[in-house]
Design a protein around this nucleic acid. Structure first.
Length: 561
DNA sequence: GCCGTTTTCGGCCCGACTGTTTTCAGTCG
């Protein structure tokens, strides 16, 4: 069991304690334990009771609950609370904007026990009658439920990958003489996955046996040449049967989006029987098109004109910008993050961007603590040379679009990532203005996660992308592709527009622990979908070139009136 | 439930923002 899952259980327990009006201090201790577990710098599974209990915010009782969770999947107090709560009420707690207090009123005063009933009540304008609820709250809740409903059955790419990878391995082991490949949206590296498609030459009857023999899978439907099943996470799978002669052809047909395939067919019907996908594209007079690009946008006209971008790869990345440490809300220290980048990832540089002072919840840095951090960076840079740590900050964009420190402090950073973390409910005009004001700030180097979205969990604030990207172009501001699998923001669908305008992109992991740095691979996936090549990616610059880039920007600043 | 002693009890307690109130409660990052 991962720390995240343990933390989730404690969070639920604290929400339920609040729902049942239990002692507020115990309730808060439970919430705080959840937070601390999430921030443990080691896996709780490996830790003894004593090791856990000596962590701040975790005592003997919490340590025991953690061990109980790991060995049995739950603990007594949580079990009892869950047992007396209708499942629909539990679901309500996970809807954004609905906390224990509001759920309490919905359940106790209005007698609503399911999310469906709650949506119905919103539509019937019945929520406004409840104490503390008004029209706006009702509308927010209605929107949040509809968002959650739309996310039903969908998975983040990263999660789907984790769940589905063992299946392909199992197929390869059980059907050694056959060919198997992921296809469809998963092979195209889409950020959200509705089903895992696997093309295989294994015989269908044997596949059915194989699925039925595995307790994790439930067979849903069998067709002539395919079968559908789901797993214990409710992730859906489709096995598509092929044969060795047609494998490449079938792979091509199932990988491309409908639009991509239609556009190919408009050129000429692709011909089965070729050895490779490459050969099929060649027969159509086209170069090979990478699966990530096969969305039916511009890739076929690019291919026809022989100007497909050379897509960026993980190994093109020379460094990483926008990362957190224990100075703010990160789990690992500055030295640990640097050592990991240098020794494990073999990168040339690390950009540190802890939270700025307004982000109190994330332990944002005061001017004094910034000086401490800078001194430590200077010392580490001496030790680790030629590896380089750049002094950055993730500056909050305040409500009026200004940055979070006075100019004399901003001037001392190597670079500044500006992003919005608070006051997220804005209309498009306000959000766009706020972003543009931040982009026009001469100290802004990179615009961080432009929409603030959390995939499948929260829509971002609405943004006029064209105006924001144009402003970045006009002010030479780089746009972040936040590589956290929940964000992947800037969306790949807007990358081409940015690139056409000459805007550089940066694949930023926003890592809060060493392992988070590997999220850059998800950034690479969507960057490739957007057609990004290494020369337009800021953190594919060498240490020397990026230092020059930062310096040039600072020179420009000095020339300002 | 955790913590730190004035050391085994008693205090603990983000702040901004929003929407609902008419002075504050709930939620979030």
């Amino acid at each position: 069991m991962e720390n995240k899952a343990i933390a989730k259980a404690f969070k639920l327990c604290s929400q339920l304690m609040e729902l049942y009006n239990q002692n507020p201090f115990r309730t808060k201790a439970m919430a705080s334990a959840s937070f601390k577990i999430d921030k443990l710098p080691f896996p709780a599974v490996d830790a003894s009771l004593e090791q856990l209990a000596e962590r701040p915010g975790i005592g003997k009782s919490t340590a025991e609950k953690i061990h109980s969770l790991i060995s049995t999947g739950s603990f007594k107090e949580l079990d009892e609370l869950v047992a007396k709560t209708p499942i629909g009420v539990l679901e309500m707690l996970s809807i954004k904007g609905l906390g224990p207090k509001k759920v309490q009123i919905v359940w106790n005063d209005l007698g609503i026990e399911t999310v469906g009933e709650l949506l119905y009540a919103c539509n019937e304008n019945r929520l406004v009658e409840a104490k503390g609820f008004g029209l706006k709250t009702q509308e927010e809740i209605r929107k949040a439920i509809e968002f959650a409903n739309a996310a039903q059955g969908l998975f983040l790419y990263a999660k789907a990958e984790k769940i589905a990878a063992p299946l392909l391995v199992a197929l390869e082991e059980n059907f050694k003489d056959d060919k198997h490949s992921f296809t469809g949206e998963f092979r195209r590296k889409c950020e959200i996955i509705s089903a895992i498609d696997i093309l295989t030459t294994a015989p269908q009857a044997a596949l059915i046996k194989f699925i039925e023999a595995n307790e994790h899978y439930t067979l849903l439907e069998t067709y002539d040449t395919s079968l559908q099943f789901s797993d214990s996470f409710s992730l859906k799978y489709q096995l598509l049967c092929s044969n060795h002669a047609n494998f490449a052809y079938d792979l091509l047909v199932h990988t491309g989006s409908d639009a991509h395939i239609q556009q190919l067919q408009a050129l000429q019907q692709p011909i089965p029987g070729a050895e490779t996908e490459e050969a099929i594209y060649h027969k159509l007079g086209l170069p090979y098109i990478a699966p990530e690009l096969r969305e039916g946008l511009q890739e076929i006209s690019w291919a026809k004109e022989n100007r497909l971008p050379v897509l960026i790869k993980f190994t093109d990345l020379k460094g990483t910008l926008h990362n957190h440490t224990t100075y703010s809300d990160g789990v690992h220290t500055l030295a640990q993050m640097a050592a990991y980048c240098k020794d494990e990832l073999r990168l040339e540089y690390l950009g540190i961007c802890d939270h700025s002072k307004t982000a109190v919840y994330a332990n944002g840095l005061s001017a004094e603590r910034l000086k401490e951090q800078w001194a430590e960076i200077d010392a580490l840079n001496q030790q680790l040379a030629p590896f380089k740590i750049f002094k950055g900050i993730e500056s909050d964009i305040l409500a009026d679009g200004s940055l979070d420190y006075p100019d004399e402090i901003l001037a001392q950073f190597d670079f500044v990532v500006a992003s919005i973390h608070s006051n997220l409910r804005m209309d498009q005009e306000k959000a766009t203005q706020r972003l543009i004001r931040a982009i026009e700030n001469p100290y802004t180097t990179i615009l961080g996660h432009p929409t603030g979205r959390l995939l499948l969990s929260r829509a971002g604030y609405p943004v006029d992308f064209k105006r924001v990207i144009d402003a970045c172009a006009a002010n030479s501001v780089v746009i972040e592709i936040n590589a956290n699998p929940l964000r992947l923001d800037l969306d790949w669908r807007w990358q081409q527009y940015a690139l056409e305008k000459g805007v550089l992109l940066s694949i930023n992991p926003d890592a809060h622990r060493t392992e988070g740095l590997m999220d850059m691979q998800y950034g690479i996936h969507v960057a490739r979908k957007g057609g990004l090549s290494a020369e337009c990616c800021l953190n594919a610059f060498s240490a020397e070139n990026i230092a020059l880039f930062f310096q040039k920007r600072k020179l420009k600043l000095k020339q300002l009136p």
